[in-house]
Design a protein around this nucleic acid. Structure first.
Length: 505
RNA sequence: GGGCCGUUAGCUCAACUGGUAGAGCAACUGACUCUUAAUCAGUAGGUUUGGGGUUCGAGCCCCCGACGGCCCA
């Protein structure tokens, strides 16, 4: 026999509000009547969606077999000797109709112990009310879970942004848009998996805890392994491990998983975020531009029904092909700098300082160009645009261009003014890779916390020979933001990072 | 990190120039056998984000902190 525990002092304190006290009292009363307020063993045989689908056009004559359904009470309309309960399960809403005549007085009166928010199961025959609503004429019902806390208000719902993020379960219960975004995210990730799997990419998992964090320009989180007595880092990217797999002979691999970067929190940044990275041997960054057009336009069509969608105030059109622009061309077009100035380190430096950029006196021309690019160009690239020919000093893992060794065979894809994908033909030459790492190590020694670490094992792997390949990373959270028209990354992450709440956690 | 804005009942929101903190929904009591934000009558519900200050008097003014939002870096 189930027994309700006495509330602990902490629970009592949390239930100081009379609203919760009333509900606790109802649970205790039910238990005294032999009815457990937290039950188990009720198996629904029909969901709300299936109910509405199956009986959409049905004409009822009372011969339908009974169905069992379960869900959370979202509204109760009690009209004396008859009552309507609006109930929500994982697929939608349905209505239970209970009458005193149908259930008997004792059973019917139990609805007085129910509250909005409780989870119940009901069994009965489907029928249509006078106003035509498909409902269940309840013959049996059971309380499955008593809710001690009241739900947010039925009409305005839950709109407080902070509560929606902190208590996502409430957001999901009462705000359809929260559900829709979460479902869209799942749909997006599934599509990408299928897209890559169909092209014979192998999904793999590589370490999230790494002794040497690599593959991106970012500050890592540190953690500590007691048994090994050594510091470990949460990964900032899977890149160097996926490339090791290329060396090992897996020629098409991808991973969809979390990265962790120790940087500020904003509408665009969560400390942990999900990245798709994929690598294809014997391909170049040019091949990946084609692949990316196909993948993301197909994704948009799959999710929104069209190559075009709205983000914020603007329409975005992902119909391929997408324009390509070199970093130089983009700067000339959007920053006001001339050809000559772009080649003049001094002119670049002056422009950067004038623009209020955080620059160091020894910054290279490439670094200055990218600083100016971020300042003047990025937010203007609304339609999908491949930006190519990135300076070698900001691309330490990418292959140099054969004609111009100061730039790399790399692209970044911009959509809605945001970097959405980053890809390059991979650097396979271990001698060049070591030089790049050493340059990064110097920057790190000079105080750049985001500079790459030198990874000796990765160099050793390259020395065994990595097939020529191209690789790409796509930030899933930002992609979901675009396709769900979400203004904040917190809208597309079920449990976004928040500072600890006062009095809880 | 900086600037601006916000935090009032379970939820959504009011409260004039500093003068008794209110409403709707939810809850509670009662009526009501086809409701759809059910309706009707009544009742109760507050450490105004925390701390300090000014004042005869502070939700409101000042200072410090917490959390959140927006913008900037």
């Amino acid at each position: 026999m189930y027994t309700l525990q006495d509330p602990s002092p902490k629970t009592k304190k949390a239930q100081a509000s009379s609203l919760t006290e009333v509900r606790l009292t109802k649970a205790q009363e039910l238990e005294r009547m032999g009815i457990p307020p937290f039950a188990t063993g009720f198996t629904p045989d029909l969901t709300a969606a299936a109910l509405h689908h199956r009986f959409a056009d049905a004409v009822f004559d009372g011969s339908e077999p009974p169905v069992s359904m379960a869900g959370r009470i979202m509204a109760m309309r009690i009209l004396g000797k008859a009552s309507f309960l609006k109930v929500r399960d994982g697929t939608g809403d349905f209505q239970l109709y209970l009458s005193r005549d149908g259930l008997g007085v004792d059973k019917y009166n139990l609805i007085k112990k129910l509250d909005v928010g409780d989870i119940i199961g009901g069994t009965g025959r489907p029928f249509r009310t006078r106003t035509g609503e498909l409902s269940i004429l309840v013959e049996e019902f059971r309380l499955l879970t008593k809710a001690f806390r009241p739900l947010p208000e039925k009409w305005h719902g839950l709109s407080d942004i902070e509560t929606r993020y902190r208590q996502r379960y409430l957001d999901l219960m009462v705000n359809p848009s929260a559900r829709e975004t979460a479902l869209a995210r799942t749909k997006i990730v599934s599509y990408l998996r299928d897209f890559l799997a169909c092209r014979e990419f192998l999904e793999v998992e590589t370490p999230m805890m790494q002794a040497v964090p690599g593959g991106a320009t970012a500050a890592p989180f540190e953690t500590f392994h007691h048994a090994l007595n050594r510091k470990l880092y949460l990964r900032i990217a899977p890149e160097l491990y996926l490339k090791r797999l290329l060396v090992g002979g897996f020629h098409r691999v991808f991973e969809i998983n979390r990265n962790f970067r120790n940087e500020g929190i904003s509408t665009q940044h969560n400390p942990e975020f999900t990245m798709l990275e994929f690598y294809q041997a014997f391909a170049t960054f040019e091949d990946l531009m084609i692949l990316t057009e196909e993948m993301l336009s197909g994704l948009a069509k799959h999710v929104t029904g069209s190559y075009k969608f709205v983000y914020g105030d603007h329409e975005v059109n992902l119909t391929p092909p997408w324009p390509r622009l070199t970093v130089r061309e983009a700067l000339i077009k959007h920053s006001g700098l001339t050809e000559e100035q772009l080649d003049d380190r001094n002119a670049l430096f002056i422009k950067a300082v004038e623009s209020g950029l955080d620059v160091r006196p020894d910054d290279s021309p490439g670094r200055l160009r990218m600083g100016l690019f971020d300042e003047f160009v990025e937010k203007k690239l609304w339609g999908p645009t491949f930006v190519i020919k990135y300076p070698v000093e900001v691309s330490p893992l990418a292959r140099r261009n054969d004609e111009d060794p100061t730039v790399t065979d790399r692209f970044e894809l911009y959509i809605c003014g945001r970097e959405t994908a980053n890809a390059f033909t991979e650097l396979t030459d271990p001698l060049d890779q070591r030089i790049r790492f050493e340059e990064q190590a110097e920057a790190r020694a000079a105080g750049d916390e985001e500079a790459h670490f030198l990874d000796e094992d990765f160099l050793r792997a390259l020395e065994y020979g990595m097939p020529p390949a191209a690789g790409e990373g796509i930030g899933i959270d930002r992609l979901v933001m675009l396709l769900t028209n979400s203004p904040s990354i917190r809208d597309v992450i079920l449990f976004p990072h928040m500072r600890p709440e006062k009095g809880i956690g």
